[in-house]
């Protein structure tokens, strides 16, 4: 059911059916995109109820505003733009979070010892192992702690596997800003994982 890449011809047919108000068109939109939008909402918001609200808002808005989508190639970006905005609105209710850009100095290792902390290679760990589950859990938590203007870029780029250009289209940002925020988000996550492994090695 989950489709990683949008197929232009299928999106074109889908958009045409939605515009004509054909029976079953909404079903096909939901079937095609609901897994990804729900998964995106979960990664962005961290709560299933919020992710379900995001999915519902996105699909209903798509149904109501389908005429605003000019061509099929823009359908996926449009859906993720609506979903991103819905996620950001959810989190706006939380604590005040400045949208400033962090300096690289704040994210750089303070010394050679900190730079050398090893993080395991995921391909070397068993699929259903405890360590893999623990790292995934810590990573999900760390993603939730990212400032939201970094989190949305990282989730679209590294978890939804969009290109920097596509992320820029979704968020209406220059590609250079996408890359700058992505890099800082990754450095923050690397720091969290490194802190975990640093404590683990101290405990041995």
């Amino acid at each position: 059911m989950r489709s990683h890449e949008s197929s232009p011809s299928t999106d074109e047919m889908l958009l045409e059916s939605l515009r004509r108000g054909e029976t079953g068109a909404f079903e096909r939109l939901a079937e095609r995109y609901s897994d990804r939008i729900f998964g995106f909402g979960l990664k962005m918001c961290g709560e299933r109820e919020d992710a379900l609200d995001v999915l519902q808002d996105t699909l209903l808005q798509a149904f109501r505003s389908i005429d605003k989508i000019e061509h099929a190639a823009a359908l996926r970006s449009w859906l993720f733009r609506v979903a991103s905005n819905a996620c950001l609105m959810k989190r706006r209710k939380g604590k005040y979070e400045p949208a400033r850009e962090l300096s690289l100095e704040e994210l750089a290792p303070r010394n050679a010892e900190e730079a050398r902390i090893e993080i395991p290679d995921p391909s070397t760990l068993p699929d259903a192992g405890v360590e893999r589950a623990e790292i995934r859990r810590r990573l999900r938590e760390a993603i939730q702690q990212l400032p939201q203007h970094y989190r949305v870029v990282l989730v679209l780029r590294d978890l939804e596997q969009m290109s920097s250009k596509q992320v820029g289209d979704v968020l209406d940002l220059p590609e250079s800003t996408v890359k700058m925020r992505l890099h800082r988000a990754r450095l923050m996550l690397r720091k969290q994982l490194a802190q975990y492994y640093s404590r683990e090695s101290d405990a041995v």
Binding site: F38, A112, L154, D158, Q161, R186, R190, A194
Partner: peptide
């Protein structure tokens, strides 16, 4: 130290790829 730092950042990105494959 920079080589080790690069490796740990590459692995962080690899873990994100691992997370992206997680199914519902």
């Amino acid at each position: 130290p920079c080589a080790a730092f690069l490796s740990s950042l590459e692995r962080t990105v690899a873990w994100l790829g691992d997370l992206s494959e997680e199914s519902l």
